[in-house]
């Protein structure tokens, strides 16, 4: 295993090959905010909240820490005026979709993001993909997936699989930062397999 030394927020951090900047920072106890990151899942790079400044050979670039590989001699800054501004805007854009999400509101308070800056669009899903990826990668049930693309992209349960697998699993529920997942599930249940749900309760 190759050991690498990088500097994160002025602190020397050692990382092994294959680690991302985020993992290196976490292992040293340095906090970087994330929404789509989960330690059991492949990095996704979807929420962009883990954006950090990475400096190599005098050049600074903005990278997503959860997918950026740690390299030797890398200089990382996790907080700066620029980063705070970026995270604030990202949070404001996400809050337009899920204005009541506790996770988002906590981060919004930290970065001074305004809930009402952008017109609210009641989609509630912030496309972090935690439920979809957890179901596919950890549970390997593939009961929930994305449909469509762009502004119409949303999550969707496959009723046949959901009726069989979901009532006893529901491991994705606590992962959702907005509770939208639960409502999609309840809707699927109501439309596709209400009887089996009753049987489960009895």
């Amino acid at each position: 295993m190759n050991e690498m030394r990088l500097t994160i927020d002025g602190r020397e951090v050692t990382a092994t090959e294959g680690m991302t900047v985020l993992e290196a920072a976490r292992s040293a106890g340095i906090f970087i905010p994330t929404l789509c990151y989960h330690e059991k899942l492949e990095p996704y790079g979807g929420c962009r909240l883990c954006m950090v400044e990475a400096e190599t050979r005098g050049r600074t670039s903005l990278v997503a820490a959860c997918v950026y590989p740690a390299v030797d001699g890398l200089l990382v800054r996790t907080r700066s005026e620029k980063l705070d501004r970026i995270r604030k805007t990202i949070l404001e854009l996400l809050l337009a979709h899920a204005p009541e999400s506790p996770v988002l509101l906590d981060l919004a308070a930290e970065y001074g993001a305004e809930v009402n800056r952008f017109e609210h669009q009641a989609s509630f899903c912030i496309h972090c993909g935690l439920c979809v990826r957890y179901c596919a990668e950890v549970k390997q049930k593939h009961a929930v997936g994305f449909v469509d693309r762009g502004i119409r992209k949303e999550i969707c349960f496959i009723p046949e699989i959901a009726a069989k697998e979901c009532p006893d699993c529901q491991a994705c529920f606590p992962l959702c930062p907005t509770s939208y997942l639960q409502s999609v599930y309840v809707l699927t249940e109501a439309l596709a397999f209400p009887a089996s749900a009753e049987a489960g309760k009895a």
């Binding site: 596919a136 994305f146 496959i158």
Partner: peptide, 12 residues
Amino acid sequence: VPYTRIHHIATF
């Protein structure tokens, strides 16, 4: 290939 993946591609 899981059906969710096919569904995603077919709607994409």
